[in-house]
Amino acid sequence: MASEKTPVTHDLSKLFEKIKDVRIAMLTTTDEQRQLHSRPMYTIKPEHDGSLLFFTDADSAKVFEVRRDDSVNLSYSNPEDNVYASVTGTASVYHDQAKINELWSEPMRAWFPKGKDDPSIRILKIVIEKAEYWDSPSSVLSQAYAYVRAVVTGEKSKDDDVNQHAQVKAR
């Protein structure tokens, strides 16, 4: 029996399309004890260079963690639409007031009450190295089809008949 292979693409646009409505990602870094440390982050937007941008505070633990070990993971999940993604990349932190001004939106004030001129705002940039996404139709009809097919044929559904699963390699 031939093993099924997950399709691989180098096109990040499909990944960005999948996660565009999932505003919160779980960012995982490695802490001082070399243990995984995760926290929610608000995704600002993907950049044309294949990176994702976030705002963070200059004194946050994640800033220290990514300066010591810049390998990170982002997990995106939208259970209502059955969309999931895992992104592995390299993190950097910097201050660029022009970029902060460009990316600023008023809801960010919840985290930075002083506004876009708050001197503690930093940009956390994650350059994507690889990613994987899963997208299954959420309709009852699609799920019923997969169930009936499995019962009748004794075979599990194939990726292309009820869901999408792909790996994205940015380089």
Rank of each mutant, 00 (worst) to 15 (best):
K99G: 03
K99I: 09
K99C: 06
K99Q: 15
K99H: 12
K99A: 13
I100L: 07
I100S: 08
I100R: 05
I100V: 15
N101F: 10
N101Y: 11
E102T: 12
E102I: 05
E102F: 06
E102V: 08
E102C: 05
E102G: 02
L103S: 02
L103H: 03
W104Q: 06
W104I: 11
W104N: 10
S105M: 14
S105N: 10
S105I: 13
S105F: 05
E106D: 09
E106I: 00
P107Q: 04
P107L: 12
P107Y: 10
P107H: 10
M108W: 11
R109I: 15
R109Y: 00
R109P: 01
R109Q: 10
A110C: 00
A110H: 04
A110M: 07
A110N: 01
F112K: 09
F112C: 09
P113D: 11
P113V: 06
P113L: 08
K114I: 02
G115K: 03
G115Q: 08
G115H: 10
K116T: 00
K116M: 07
D117K: 11
D117I: 04
D117Q: 13
D117R: 08
D118Q: 09
D118C: 11
D118F: 08
D118P: 05
D118Y: 07
D118K: 08
D118E: 11
P119Q: 02
P119H: 02
P119T: 03
S120T: 14
S120W: 04
S120F: 05
S120E: 12
S120N: 14
S120A: 10
I121Q: 10
I121P: 04
I121H: 08
I121E: 05
R122W: 01
R122T: 03
R122V: 00
I123L: 15
I123G: 01
I123W: 01
I123F: 04
L124F: 01
L124G: 04
L124K: 02
K125P: 03
K125I: 04
I126C: 03
I126E: 03
I126T: 04
I126Q: 00
I126M: 04
V127S: 13
V127R: 12
I128K: 00
I128W: 00
I128C: 07
E129A: 12
E129K: 15
E129L: 07
E129P: 01
K130S: 15
K130E: 15
K130N: 15
E132L: 01
E132D: 04
E132W: 03
E132H: 05
Y133C: 08
Y133F: 15
Y133Q: 03
W134V: 11
D135G: 02
D135M: 10
D135T: 01
D135S: 15
S136T: 11
P137N: 15
P137M: 11
P137L: 14
S138V: 06
S138W: 09
S138T: 10
S139A: 11
V140R: 13
V140F: 14
V140H: 11
L141A: 14
L141P: 00
S142P: 02
S142V: 04
S142A: 15
S142Q: 04
S142Y: 03
S142R: 04
Q143V: 03
Q143Y: 02
A144E: 07
A144K: 06
Y145N: 05
Y145F: 12
A146C: 13
A146F: 05
A146D: 11
Y147Q: 09
Y147T: 13
Y147V: 12
Y147P: 00
Y147N: 08
Y147W: 12
Y147I: 10
V148R: 02
V148S: 13
R149I: 02
R149E: 12
R149F: 10
A150K: 13
A150C: 06
